[in-house]
Amino acid sequence: MASQLGIPMELIVEARRNPVRVPVALISFGVLSAAALALIIFKAPAGIFLHLHGSTPAYLCYSVLGAVVVFGLAVAPFGYWVVPCDVDGWHDAGKTVLWVSILPLVLVLALGGLAFLK
C-alpha cells in the first residue's frame, strides 16, 4: 500500500538497519503526510462520515486531516535538520518518529487517500 504511494517499503527496512537512511525516510513520510492537505481542499468527507448525521463528523474528518498535515510538517524538518547533524546519536529517535508517522499515513488512507490514485 505504501509502495503505491511512492514510498518503497525497502526505505523503511533500510532506515531500521542503516542510520544514514533515516533522514530520507522521515522526509518522505513527512511530505506524504503533509499531502493530506490535498484531501482537505479537494475531497469532501466520505465513507463512514456519510452515515452519521450533522456537521460534527465533517469537522472531525477535517480536524484529523489537519492534525496529520501539522504532524507531517513537523516530521519532514526533523528528518532534514535534526537527524543528519548526528546520525548515530539520533538514530533511535529517528526510528521512533518514523514508526509513529505510519499511524497518520494509515489515517489518511482510511479517510480517502486512495481516492486520488484512481
Rank of each mutant, 00 (worst) to 15 (best):
M1Q: 03
M1C: 02
A2F: 11
A2H: 03
S3K: 03
G6L: 09
M9P: 00
M9I: 05
E10T: 07
L11H: 01
I12L: 12
I12D: 01
V13Y: 05
V13W: 05
A15T: 00
A15Q: 04
R16W: 14
R16C: 10
R17L: 13
R17E: 15
R17T: 12
N18H: 08
N18V: 09
P19V: 09
V20K: 10
R21N: 07
V22W: 06
V22L: 07
P23W: 02
P23N: 01
V24D: 05
V24P: 01
V24K: 07
A25G: 06
L26W: 04
L26A: 02
G30S: 03
G30N: 01
G30R: 02
V31A: 08
V31N: 01
L32P: 00
S33T: 05
S33E: 15
S33N: 15
A35T: 09
A36V: 06
A38S: 12
A38Y: 10
I40F: 04
K43A: 13
A44Y: 08
A44V: 11
A44C: 04
A44W: 12
A44N: 11
P45V: 12
A46W: 05
I48K: 12
F49L: 12
H51E: 14
H53K: 14
H53G: 07
G54L: 09
G54R: 12
S55G: 11
S55M: 10
T56Q: 10
T56M: 12
P57Y: 14
Y59V: 15
Y59E: 10
Y59W: 13
Y59G: 10
L60E: 03
C61A: 15
C61Y: 14
C61E: 12
Y62W: 14
S63N: 09
V64C: 13
L65P: 02
L65F: 10
G66D: 09
A67K: 05
A67P: 05
V68Y: 03
V68E: 09
V70K: 05
V70L: 15
L73G: 08
A76V: 01
A76S: 09
P77Q: 04
F78R: 00
Y80A: 14
Y80F: 13
Y80C: 08
W81Q: 06
V82A: 07
V83G: 03
P84S: 02
P84R: 01
C85A: 13
C85S: 14
D88C: 09
D88L: 13
W90T: 13
H91A: 15
H91C: 09
D92S: 13
G94Y: 05
G94E: 04
T96C: 11
L98Q: 05
L98I: 03
W99K: 01
W99E: 03
W99G: 02
S101I: 02
P104R: 06
P104S: 06
V106G: 02
V106P: 00
L107N: 02
L107H: 03
V108Y: 10
V108K: 08
L109A: 07
L109S: 03
L109R: 04
A110S: 09
A110E: 08
G112Q: 11
G112M: 09
G113I: 08
G113Q: 07
L114P: 01
L114R: 07
L114Y: 08
A115L: 11
F116G: 05
L117F: 11
K118N: 08
K118Q: 11
K118E: 09
